[in-house]
Design a protein around this nucleic acid. Structure first.
Length: 593
RNA sequence: GGGCGUGUAGCAUAGCUGGAUAAUGCGUUGGCCUCCUAAGCCGAAGAUCCCGGGUUCAAAUCCUGGCACGUCCGCCA
């Protein structure tokens, strides 16, 4: 709608001048109309009442009178104090069809912006399989990566590997010291390993980790165990290469298992950076030396060091510890070193973090400011819960992503099989896999991240209404139109290049609705990217698919072997936008369903 | 106790840089396949926008005081 706004703003300005309004406040008041029947853009005239000494409806009338004619404007009317402006559908169609962003190639992709964005997301500790609770980070992060790429930014998706903490230490200790019999004996009474995941290291090794967690609490030699784990963690934090290598051997297969799961969702990373690097390369040591020189630096009784961020306006607990009494660094300290490193390689930095990291992120941000560095943008999300409450591996109250995806694909296969009895087995499987994983992603991405989210199977596996398959289906219909054209011997490429067409003067509701949805597409994308709110784009795509369905109903493209060129061109723009939009959200743009 | 976030039809959500009749899906309910895929389309019913106060011509939206829920307030990661 930005395209219409840009076109008519000067006209409104002229009209306002005509009735005696000279200030500029109205620009922010000019907004999309609430109801489509009213128009596309509306200007409330109430604020002008005092200034002009007239009733708002009269002002609206006067403005409507004063509006100059313009090809972009289909209709101007004044209703109840509002000036409503409706775009001329032919102008909209012409603008959309001639826009390089929609008509050019490839598939409505935007021009490169030249901006380099580094997006860090997921970065889950490599100690067990992915569960749905963690999934929001990965799905949100990956959607952001994809949307930025669609927008034209150069993006690097980064996974920060926590390779030196206590969690990895416990895993490494367990793998070195516990037999599989001991593990199974310790975990007796818990859910056994799902045979389906036998051989998948994230599912198998997490049992060692879980057993170790029990043993650390219960076994008589637990103090010795604790000492040993402590020794390893401590050594890792001082950059002991042998221990770090052992840790890496322990977690790598787990991480690979987790990445396999993410790949099923279409989530991939460009780079992996290990936390320990910043210890071994000396960055963390130098950073801590530098902190010493700060005037907000402080030292505790045992020699531990902190920065007093209270002096910079932080409320609550203001001491931000960056070094233990024994001289080793803390997680946040390494994180700061990591951020300084990241800033060297991008123009914008985005982190995707759970809401539990808010304070941490605030401390890191303030410290970066203190260091003269930029503060990264952070996308916070609230946790996914189960109807039974918080997800907890320990309590067995979890839904593993692998199980969810299996179930999603199985249920999708049942739906496809029932709906398309004539399809081959292999084809059904391919469609079901695409629909199942897309549905899972979309179910999570369509709601705003700060909202608490309760995972429900029936919602994750809904394949109608506001779901990914709904969008996929509209796209399939658009694809099927092209197939139909080919079947009728119509030269689609030639039809699309034909610029010598008459736009119908009267357009159906379905056509006008679709044109409007297409005209806001790039506006919504820009907003979703810049505000870091992927759900806005998800909801727009739902709306676009909905509009396409109405267009499909109202506007036949092939009738008795004859093609309607205008309708075909619009349909193809919509198809491309749906396709790129789906890719931007990680929905599989399949062509048959 | 303090910080941050959330509270919208039976359910799940959108709208939150103030603007007209609060939007969408599920569920309930009525209709539409000789016609480019009915995973679709069209219609009906369903809302004290958590509660109180304030600002404003105008408040779901902003301010303020409550209530409920989530989350954080480690020399853990």
């Amino acid at each position: 709608m930005q395209m219409l706004k840009a076109e008519i703003e000067p006209l409104i300005e002229a009209a306002l001048l005509h009735v005696g309004i000279t200030n500029d406040h109205w620009r922010s008041m000019l907004a999309p109309s609430r109801e489509l029947d009213q128009g596309d853009l509306s200007l409330p005239c109430f604020p002008f009442a005092k200034q002009l000494g007239q009733a708002p409806p009269a002002i609206a009338e006067a403005l409507a009178e004063a509006m100059p004619e313009h090809e972009a404007i289909g209709e101007v009317n004044a209703v109840a104090g509002y000036l409503n402006i409706k775009a001329d559908p032919s102008w909209l169609a012409k603008t959309i069809l001639s826009s390089p962003e929609t008509h050019g190639h490839p598939f409505g992709q935007r021009q490169p912006t030249g901006r380099k964005i580094l997006i860090e997301h997921t970065s889950a500790n490599p100690n067990g399989p992915f569960h749905v609770g963690r999934a929001r980070n990965a799905i949100l992060g990956d959607s952001l990566v994809r949307l930025h790429r669609l927008y034209g930014n150069e993006v690097r998706a980064e996974y920060y590997v926590d390779d030196m903490g206590k969690q990895v230490g416990v895993l490494a200790w367990a793998l070195a010291n516990l037999s599989s019999e001991e593990v199974e004996a310790t975990l007796e009474g818990r859910d056994p390993l799902n045979p389906k995941w036998k051989g998948k290291a994230d599912h198998e090794r997490v049992r060692w980790y879980q057993a170790a967690q029990v043993i650390r609490q219960e076994r008589e030699d637990k103090d010795d165990i604790e000492k040993e784990i402590g020794r390893m963690v401590h050594a890792s934090e001082h950059g002991d290469q042998q221990v770090l290598d052992d840790f890496q051997a322990a977690y790598t297969p787990v991480l690979e298992g987790m990445l396999t799961t993410l790949a099923r969702l279409g989530i991939n990373f460009d780079t992996f950076t290990k936390e320990s690097i910043f210890v071994t390369n000396g960055d963390v040591g130098r950073l801590m030396q530098r902190f010493k020189t700060f005037d907000i630096h402080g030292t505790a009784d045992n020699g531990a060091e902190f920065l007093d961020l209270g002096a910079r306006g932080l409320k609550g607990k203001t001491e931000f510890f960056f070094r233990r009494g024994d001289g080793s660094s803390l997680y946040a300290t390494r994180d700061i070193a990591y951020h300084m490193w990241k800033w060297q390689q991008c123009d914008d930095l985005i982190n995707v973090l759970g809401e539990d990291h808010k304070l941490q992120a605030k401390q890191v941000g303030m410290t970066l400011t203190e260091l003269g560095q930029k503060v990264p943008d952070v996308l916070f999300y609230s946790f996914i819960k189960l109807p039974e409450g918080k997800m907890s591996t320990r309590k067995g109250n979890v839904v593993f992503m692998d199980d969810l995806l299996e179930e999603a694909q199985a249920q999708a296969a049942a739906v496809v099989g029932a709906l398309r009895p004539d399809y081959e087995h292999q084809q059904i499987k391919e469609i079901a896999d695409a629909a199942g994983t897309s549905a899972v992603r979309f179910n999570i991405i369509k709601v705003s991240p700060e909202k608490g989210f309760t995972f429900r199977w029936e919602e994750a596996l809904a394949f109608e209404g506001g779901s990914a398959p709904f969008i996929m289906y509209s796209h399939v219909r658009a694809c099927s139109i092209v197939r139909r054209c080919h079947k009728e011997g119509i030269d689609v490429t030639a039809e699309l290049e034909n610029t010598n067409i008459d736009h119908p003067k009267e357009m159906s509701k379905g056509m006008v609705g679709l044109l409007r949805a297409l005209s806001v597409h790039n506006d919504v994308l820009a907003k979703a990217v810049n505000d870091r709110r992927p759900h806005l784009f998800a909801n727009h795509l739902l709306h676009l698919a909905n509009c396409f369905n109405a267009f499909y109903r109202d506007c036949m493209i092939v009738v008795e072997g004859e093609v309607n060129t205008f309708n075909l061109q619009i349909s193809e723009v919509a198809r491309r936008m749906m396709r790129t939009g789906m890719e931007g959200l990680g929905i599989a743009p399949i062509e048959h369903m």
